[in-house]
């Protein structure tokens, strides 16, 4: 992770204390929001466990870690902007979307039109890991996230999801 470009706030000790002043806190959470998305984009990951002391929430050189309530505030802020969703009721496991699902849906649909996938069936694996999508932003994206984006497209009538034996396929219109 040596080449990840941390914002200056990451080395600013009070960044790891949830700020009491409303305006400052809004500013703080906005920076956390961007940082989390960039960090997950950089690692090409999407699942986040609030209790895990990852480098994102812990700056060991600075001896600072964001406490649980702070992490929850960050995740709820991300949820508010459409960049995360909780996976369990206790809100400890989260999915981070560095593009919102709406944006992913549009990106994937545009790709399908551009590469002439219309009216033919492909699997989700092909979308996220196939030769056709090399170089696309969603290449090697979590398949669960791809599926959620496709469900949005299905609601808009732009594709149809179908179940094969144990893998899912999709047909774009």
């Amino acid at each position: 992770m040596a080449d990840f470009d941390w914002p200056w706030e990451y080395n600013f000790p009070p960044f790891f204390t949830l700020q009491p002043n409303n305006e400052t806190r809004t500013r703080q959470l906005t920076v956390w929001n961007n940082l989390t998305r960039n960090y997950y984009k950089h690692r090409n990951q999407s699942s986040l466990d609030i209790n895990e002391d990852s480098p994102l929430f812990c700056n060991n050189a600075l001896k600072r870690r964001l406490p649980t309530e702070g992490r929850l505030a960050v995740m709820e802020h991300l949820q508010g902007t459409g960049h995360a969703a909780p996976l369990d009721k206790r809100r400890t496991n989260w999915q981070v979307y560095w593009h919102t699902l709406d944006e992913w849906a549009k990106i994937i649909y545009d790709w399908s039109q551009r590469t002439g996938q219309t009216n033919s069936v492909c699997t989700i694996y092909e979308i996220s890991n196939g030769d056709n999508s090399v170089g696309e932003e969603f290449h090697e994206l979590d398949q669960d996230v791809v599926l959620k984006a496709l469900k949005l497209l299905e609601e808009q009538g732009k594709c149809e999801l179908m179940l094969f034996d144990d893998s899912q396929g999709v047909k774009f219109f």
């Binding site: 009070p14 790891f16 204390t17 400052t24 703080q28």
Partner: peptide, 20 residues
């Protein structure tokens, strides 16, 4: 702090906060 000019750093509840 209320005017947003300084941030509070309070890494644990036992020690006094630092203002940045």
């Amino acid at each position: 702090v209320g005017e947003g000019l300084a941030w509070v750093d309070c890494p644990d509840s036992n020690s006094a906060p630092t203002y940045w």
